[in-house]
Amino acid sequence: MRRFLLIAIPFGWLLALFLVPFFIVVKISLSDVAVSIPPYVPQFSWETGIGTFLRDLDFENFVFLTTDSLYWKSYVGSLVIAVISTFLTLLIGYPIAYGMARAPEEWRATLMMLIILPFWTSFLIRIYAWMGILSREGLLNQFLMWTGVISEPLTILNTNYAVYIGIIYAYLPFMVLPIYSALDRMDTSLIEAAEDLGCSRLTAFWLVTVPLSRNGIIAGCFLVFIPALGEFVIPSLLGGSGTLMIGKVLWEEFSSNRDWPLASAVAVVLLLILVVPIVLFQRNQQKQQEAEQ
């Protein structure tokens, strides 16, 4: 009985906060847009009954998603941006994590602090700060012009480059922290053993360190990839008219176009796409836990 309660509470919580809203979204995705409060029909009413209500629902909005190329192009656009920025974040984050894990014991707490420090400022404000840095007359262009590297200001803000810079900047700590914790736990005598057995330092790194930090790398990649895929703030503030990301499209359908049924259909499809990496991530976590036991 006690065990049942223990399981029932978190599951009740999940049911209330995930499944119920999800079904509301699915329901709206089967409705039609209207100028009314709220902005879609049919509304459920007890007078007409559930039969009429269900008859008025259709899959028109999902069909529409397939006819307009904007949607799949945005899904693909988000996927490309998420994959590339995850890769770049790994490329930058790994050496940082490695350096931290190999730093003298007494420095590590401070280094860790420095990674977490940016979280003390609002995410939104940090992205706004990047607008000031990357704009045509911004700090970066002024600096580059001053040093004489360029003679004409570069257009970075409102392009995809700015989106990459924003995502890498914002999600770097999520890559560094899991890799750091994996490297930190690693037994360094294994490297010595590899070197004793004739490995060069580089081969020892590839054959011993990287495989042992594999779980940290996978966790870091998922922690960057999943939010980057649905990212809305960074592409809308730093991106330009050419930036196609599904999070932005979703927001626009919902707020600017006031097309809630279509926005809900986009959200349902996005969720289905995201479920795949999330399940993979879960499975990896589970395996890791089993391996540790």
Partner: peptide, 18 residues
């Protein structure tokens, strides 16, 4: 409402280029 959706599609197309 009908013309609105045409205009909205048009505008989304213009903004996104597709």
């Amino acid at each position: 409402a009908k013309v609105q959706r045409v205009a909205t599609r048009l505008w989304t197309k213009v903004k996104s280029g597709t």
